[in-house]
C-alpha cells in the first residue's frame, strides 16, 4: 500500500543533463520507489574520475555523515549523540551508490535497496526494543 505520493513522472535522470551537487542532491529527501521516505542526502562521496575531475559516487546518510557539515557546537553535539546511540561501527557511514538513484526531482528516488543492516541501525534498535513490544505496533492506524 503506497503511503506517500508516488514519485512524479518527468524526474527520471536523463543522460547529459547537468545537476548541481549542492542544489539538486545535498539535503534532498531520498524516497523509495513507492514514495516512502528513506533518508536525507546528508553528505556526498566524491571520487576522482580517470581524467582527475571529481565525480559523485554515492550519497552518504546518517547523523555521523551530517555532523561535520553542521560545524561548531551543534556538530559536536550531534556527533557525540550519534556515536553513543549507534549500534554498529562508528567510522562507517551508510551509503547509497549513485547507480541506485533513478530520479532526481523534488526528492531523490532510490531503487528499493537490498535490506541493509547498516542503513538504519538506530531505527532497527528502536523498533525492536521500544516500539514493537507495545501492543498494536504492527497495525497502521491509517
Amino acid at each position: 500500500m503506497p503511503q506517500h505520493p508516488p514519485p512524479r513522472p518527468g524526474d527520471e535522470r536523463t543522460p547529459g543533463r547537468a545537476y548541481s551537487a549542492r542544489f539538486h542532491l545535498l539535503d534532498r529527501q531520498i524516497v523509495t520507489e513507492d514514495g516512502t521516505p528513506l533518508a536525507k542526502a546528508d553528505d556526498l562521496e566524491l571520487i576522482p574520475d580517470s581524467d582527475g575531475s571529481l565525480v559523485v559516487s554515492a550519497v552518504l546518510i546518517g547523523p555521523t555523515a551530517l555532523a561535520p557539515r553542521l560545524r561548531g557546537r551543534p556538530a559536536r553535539l550531534l556527533n557525540a549523540l550519534a556515536r553513543r546511540l549507534t549500534t554498529g561501527p562508528t567510522d562507517h557511514h551508510a551509503r547509497i551508490a549513485m547507480g541506485h538513484i533513478i530520479r532526481i526531482g523534488a526528492a531523490l528516488t532510490a531503487t528499493t535497496p537490498p535490506v541493509d543492516a547498516t542503513l538504519h541501525p538506530l531505527e532497527d534498535w528502536i523498533r525492536d526494543n521500544v516500539i514493537a513490544p507495545l501492543p498494536g505496533s504492527g497495525h497502521a492506524p491509517g
Binding site: 516512502t36 531505527e123 528502536i126 523498533r127 521500544v130 516500539i131 498494536g136 505496533s137 504492527g138 497495525h139
Partner: peptide, 9 residues
C-alpha cells in the same frame, strides 16, 4: 499512515 513499527523513530 504507517504502522508504528515501520516508523519507529
Amino acid at each position: 499512515t504507517h504502522a508504528p513499527r515501520a516508523a519507529a523513530r
